[in-house]
Design a protein around this nucleic acid. Structure first.
Length: 271
DNA sequence: AAGGTCAGCAACCGCGGGTAC
DNA sequence: AGTACCCGCGGTTGCTGACCT
């Protein structure tokens, strides 16, 4: 059984909206409010389908829309949100006041994608394209250490500093981390065993973090866990540098979007 | 000036979730 | 429980203007 059409397609206009149609829609919504899109066209005297009216209002006519170019801040935010949420444009739009999901989607497809590709970043996974390629190659012949070298200089360093067994373990972890799962979940950030081991080596034990800090909700004054960022504001003479923070904080500023795992794209040039 | 190509964006389409009956 | 409907979302299309030859 098929779904009934949302409107009589034979008697509706399609394509670009005229000023008269816009005016009718605006004045109707001003006096009656949003909603009941199915019946709105007839009530407003429009030969359009309800969906078309809704789209026109939401994407173009709404008074709270911010028109014009995207700012660098918005640009950066879109990239960060996309790395977390994937193509959930409506969710992304809720974090950008005055912007619509359609506008952000178009902007992504026409500007940001290209910008990321030019910077060597895969827009779908937000990972360096070369590393991704290398990862798939390494997966095919995981037992071959020759393939491992294609991860680049950083991994070469690791190889020389660790015994082979541990390195193979790290390869498995890194290979795993390159598979981006776009499924949206609320959960603490993924950490591999090696990261935890390194922290144990660094601090003598694994640092304790409360759930609030793990979700990026930590509040410096009330929080008593060991998240460095929580206590930075308290000490005016703090000697922590940003690298100290990124290397020692186990937490993840999810809502603030200060994720250390997200690459900084602001340096890439726009076309 | 005319025609071709391309990028940007508005609008459309199909589908799925939620809900009333 | 099943059906029909409304609404919203994400992918895609197609129009338009800018630029190039």
């Amino acid at each position: 059984m098929g779904r009934s059409p949302c409107c009589e397609k034979d008697h509706t206009n399609k394509g670009a909206w005229t000023k008269e149609e816009d005016q009718k829609l605006i004045s109707y919504i001003k006096s009656h409010g949003e909603g009941c899109w199915r019946s709105l066209p007839a009530s407003a005297g429009l030969l359009r389908c309800g969906k078309s009216c809704r789209l026109r209002w939401i994407n173009y006519l709404r008074p709270d829309l911010k028109r014009g170019n995207f700012t660098l801040e918005e640009d950066d935010l879109i990239i960060k949100l996309h790395s977390l949420l994937g193509n959930k444009w409506s969710l992304i739009a809720t974090r950008l006041p005055g912007r619509t999901d359609n506008e952000i989607k178009n902007y992504w497809n026409t500007h940001v994608k290209r910008k990321l590709l030019r910077g060597g970043i895969d827009p779908a996974t937000h990972r360096p394209i070369k590393a991704r390629r290398a990862a798939s190659e390494a997966r095919e012949t995981e037992d071959s250490l020759v393939k491992v070298l294609s991860f680049g200089p950083q991994l070469e360093k690791e190889e020389s500093s660790r015994e082979e067994g541990r390195f193979k373990k790290s390869l498995t972890c890194k290979t795993k981390s390159l598979d981006l799962n776009l499924e949206l979940r609320i959960s603490p950030p993924w950490q591999d065993q090696q990261q935890r081991d390194e922290r144990k080596l660094l601090f003598g034990r694994e640092k304790y973090l409360c759930s609030a800090c793990r979700f990026g909700l930590g509040n410096g004054k009330e929080c008593s866990c060991e998240n460095v960022r929580c206590h930075i504001d308290d000490s005016s003479s703090s000697s922590y540098s940003s690298s100290d923070i990124s290397s020692s904080v186990v937490g993840f500023d999810f809502l603030g979007l200060n994720t250390s795992s997200v690459l900084d794209y602001t340096s890439f040039e726009m076309n």
